[in-house]
Design a protein around this nucleic acid. Structure first.
Lengths: 135, 135
DNA sequence: TTTTTACTTTAGAATTATTATAAACTAAAT
DNA sequence: ATTTAGTTTATAATAATTCTAAAGTAAAAA
């Protein structure tokens, strides 16, 4: 992902490209593969990688703006912390309860043959499959 | 569910049948259909239905013991509160984000044709399907 | 029974993740 | 250069949950 795209992501999220936000955006989007993170893990890694400081509130605000703009998705995981995913395509997850680790499953890896129809007046937004793992 | 079964549930969860615990167990298990609840909703309903008082800690402790013993399951839902389910069979859920409502889907209503194999050294514990709803 | 022991309840404090606030700061428009 | 509108930050507030320690209760022992 190029610098230009980082700026595009920020603008399309309604965010001015400040030092902190550019660093966050680069950290999230300037990589080959998508990944999962929590605000806590993001804070730790930013603290290591970057020279400037980040208030927690800044990280929360930025992440939420990205999410609202569709550049990040949130993953349903049991537990206290919220998990985010830079993979915004339709996909599924393995979840390893022992390590609290999430692993992406490509949409094509799961085929659902039968599904109930939505209840009265509701429509199906999307279908998410969680495969819980054990040792 | 008979009184005897309530006591069985308590004992198998390692809990002495105290007044509070019996009331909680009756409220959860003495009904025709399974249902979903949060600790907050449970507290409210117990306060209405019952004569005795319940400390929050008692509700949390009791629920956790039931869960540990397999008499309750926890549902993965995005959000702050934890949802519990008295349906402990393998099943799936509709989730209505607008009303925060969970609806059970019987296992037989969903047929999965293809699924990836578990990663290195791990096994599949179970597969949960979430159908997110919109209006 | 009574006594003893181990487990329980409870109110309130502590913790954890997250969100709100308001003062100092900075980017962009004028 | 100055103004304006948006930002960062430290800290306070909130919300769900867990911990704690004192007072209470069920079950076991005598």
């Amino acid at each position: 992902m190029k610098k230009v795209d980082i700026f595009k992501k920020l603008r399309s999220s309604g965010l001015r490209p400040t030092k902190q936000r550019v660093e966050i955006a680069k950290f999230l989007f300037e990589r080959e593969k998508t990944f999962h993170f929590t605000v806590e893990s993001l804070e730790n890694q930013l603290a290591k990688k970057s020279t400037c400081k980040f208030a927690l509130a800044t990280i929360y605000n930025t992440i939420h703006a990205f999410k609202k703009a569709g550049h990040l998705s949130e993953v349903d995981v049991r537990g206290k912390k919220t998990y985010f995913d830079t993979n915004i395509t339709n996909h599924h997850h393995f979840y390893d309860g022992e390590t609290s680790e999430l692993i992406d499953i490509d949409s094509s890896e799961v085929v659902i043959q039968k599904i109930p129809k939505a209840p009265n007046g509701k429509k199906i937004k999307n279908v998410e499959v969680f495969i819980n793992l054990k040792n």
